[in-house]
Design a protein around this nucleic acid. Structure first.
Length: 486
RNA sequence: GCUCCCGUGGUGUAGCCCGGUCUAGCAUACCGGCCUUUCGAGCCGGUGACCCGGGUUCAAAUCCCGGCGGGAGCACCA
């Protein structure tokens, strides 16, 4: 047992789980392989993994593919990648479509015990009877008859919809949703992974209850939307006389400004609206990874949120703040001139700019530029338009200039103008690299960046006065930035 | 409609179980100042909350009741 007196000084981290013995905790993350994982899933992954680590238990990854119509073959691998990216390591791995015989065996047992029945009634009629009351004659038939119909189901004597396996609960349960629920149904579509070997598939609630028990799950953490499912699953535990795990239901998370729905994403990719499952507009974990959001930031976020039952709004602000804290000291600084315009600088002389790659860590070196006047520089159109005729401002780390009509004039190197409120803007002289930045709202910002950015391909950089971006490079040499946050 | 869950500042969370130490802590956001050749980082300060109404009690964010508000489920999806 974890010492009960612990919570006093434990300010950070998750609250203890009841009935959790160090070394004996077994928890699972069990998504359906219909697509890669998104932010919503990451809460379950992090919470389960975190508790497993806390109690030195075992983490089980289980893929729930008992609905052939709802399986994306690539998702099996993608989910493993996503879980790993989050820093969770599973000790055991299962795929439900490999376990069909196990579910069948348990179905048979329930029928033999009289705890389940085969229903061949019209689904609507059956449902109405459950809600409003009414005789369900098949429910009362003896096990022999039930087993016979079960065999017929398996043999293909019924078409989809003509027969289902129903787990008995309590027809008087106050919540109609928990009264007698479907445990198996007929699906004739071939399963993307195991083909047409089976035509009777367990439903979520049936497979979960059987697996959670057989896999020795001690604690189940899931969203409040599963509250009714938990009640249904508990009937299966009771029918078999199994000990129940501890159930926890955390509140729902509402998210704004992201696309999470797999169906929408799949459509969008097909139509070419998204560049892929990792399009920066999406809430998939691969999209976050592409943008340079670190898994540690997500973990910290979910641990901070905890497992309360209150519904919450997801806060990008807080996630970004955590991420910024993690990446700021790692991210090199570079100039990215968006929407660039070329401006002439008049004057004479040769000047050198020595710009630190990180202002708080000079050991990382400098970007060194030599500028010989007169010349031309690129600056962002925004900046140019915000500068008035005659205004004095500074090209960061280079020198001061003054705007004269449509060109600039060298204006010395007096740093004190900054104290008097002059602007400091970024610039590129000469050798800029074509750059495209994808933002989360779907907009694309074009411009040029400093050549040293190439040192940071695959890493997160901070484009000064713009924001943090993760860098990739196209075959044609173009630098691509995926915008993380400001 | 029915069944169930929840209600601390803009957001998230601590405290609530075991009433006083809560003039309610922390984070983020916001505002102001300092620092800084980025609209980043850092430092300092500030605004801002116990849903409402009763009750119990010497004492309630904490216990009880009612109201109001929010959410979920009511699938042969997971």
């Amino acid at each position: 047992m974890l010492p009960e007196e612990k919570p006093k000084e434990e300010k950070k981290g998750l609250p203890p789980l009841s009935g959790a013995d160090v070394g004996k905790v077994r928890m699972r993350f069990a998504p359906g392989p219909s697509g890669p994982l998104h932010i919503g899933h990451s809460r379950a992954v992090v919470l389960n993994d975190e508790y497993v680590k806390m109690y030195k238990g075992k983490f089980i990854l289980r893929l729930e593919d008992t609905n052939p119509k709802n399986v994306l073959p690539e998702a099996y691998e993608m989910i493993k990648e996503d879980v790993s990216w989050l820093g969770a390591k599973w000790h055991e791995f299962y795929i439900q479509s490999d376990r069909m015989q196990i579910y069948y065996e348990h179905a048979r047992k329930l029928l033999e015990m009289g705890k389940a029945y085969i229903c061949t009634e019209d689904p609507e009629v059956w449902r109405k009877k459950k809600v409003h009351g009414g005789k369900i004659p098949e429910r009362e038939l003896p096990p022999e008859d039930q087993l016979e119909k079960w065999e017929k189901m398996l043999d293909g004597d019924y078409k989809p919809g003509e027969a289902v396996f129903v787990v008995k609960t309590d027809l008087n349960h106050p919540n109609p949703a928990v009264r007698d629920f479907v445990g198996f149904r007929i699906v004739e579509e071939p399963h993307p992974r195991i083909g047409d070997k089976y035509r009777v598939y367990p439903t979520y609630n049936f497979a979960v209850a059987i697996d959670d028990h057989l896999m020795g799950i001690t604690h189940v953490l899931r969203g409040k939307d599963h509250l009714v499912n938990t009640m249904r699953q508990e009937y299966i535990y009771e029918h078999f006389g199994w000990e129940k795990p501890y159930f926890y239901h955390y509140g729902l998370v509402s998210m704004e400004n992201v696309i999470l729905k797999t169906t929408v994403i799949k459509e969008g990719i097909k139509k070419g609206e998204f560049i892929g499952w990792d399009d920066p507009r999406l809430g998939t974990l691969r999209a976050l990874a592409k943008r340079g959001i670190s898994p540690e930031a997500l973990r910290k976020y979910w641990i901070d949120v905890g497992l309360k039952e209150v519904d919450i709004k997801f806060s990008w602000d807080i996630l970004y703040a955590y991420n910024r804290e993690l990446i700021d000291r790692k991210a090199n600084r570079y100039f990215f001139v968006w929407d660039p315009i070329k401006v002439r600088i008049k004057g004479t002389g040769r000047y050198e700019a020595k710009i630190p790659k990180h202002p708080n860590d000079l050991s990382r070196g400098y970007r060194v530029r030599t500028v010989e006047l007169p010349t031309e520089v690129y600056i962002s159109r925004d900046d140019w338009e915000s500068i008035k005729e005659g205004e004095l401002f500074r090209l960061k780390d280079l020198f001061n200039v003054k705007r004269v009509k449509d060109y600039l004039e060298y204006a010395g190197n007096d740093l004190s103008i900054i104290k008097r409120g002059s602007k400091i803007i970024h610039w590129i002289c000469g050798e800029g690299i074509k750059t495209v930045v994808y933002k989360t709202d779907g907009s694309i910002v074009g411009g040029i960046c400093e050549p040293e950015v190439l040192e940071s391909v695959g890493k997160v950089v901070q484009f000064e006065r713009f924001g943090y971006c993760r860098i990739e490079r196209l075959p044609d040499g173009t630098v691509v930035g995926y915008f993380a946050h400001s």
